[in-house]
């Protein structure tokens, strides 16, 4: 199997992570922020898989990526439930309007 230069993976991963971070920081809707988080997690997964080729067993990174996916799914389920509750409570899901913590 022809191996691809690992730094390309890293560039894609970094770009993906940066986009995810930007989404998390800049977007105001809670669900979009969650989508940014998913992007960042997947950027991490790309890195994990990319580095996995240097593993003699070539399995540890992939296993960890799978694990991250499971966790991300769980996290999405919980977070979406919270967002739903928040929306019900505040009648909005815009993060900048949710400043209840300040009080």
């Amino acid at each position: 199997m022809q191996s691809v230069d690992s730094h390309l993976f890293l560039i894609v991963g970094a770009a993906l992570f940066s986009i995810g971070l930007a989404v998390v920081l800049l977007k105001r809707h809670a669900i979009v922020v969650l989508m940014g988080i998913e992007l960042m997690l997947n950027a991490v997964n790309i890195n994990l898989v990319a580095f996995s080729q240097y593993d003699p067993d070539r399995i540890q990174g992939q296993m960890l990526a799978l694990f991250v996916m499971v966790v991300a799914a769980a996290e999405s389920a919980v977070a979406l439930a919270i967002v739903l509750q928040v929306y019900r409570h505040f009648r909005t899901a815009q993060l900048d309007e949710l400043n209840e913590l300040r009080q």
Partner: peptide, 14 residues
């Protein structure tokens, strides 16, 4: 700093 906005917290954390 404690303005209650989640995103600014995250910004600071990052």
């Amino acid at each position: 700093v404690q303005n209650g906005r989640v995103q600014s917290y995250i910004t600071v954390a990052v």
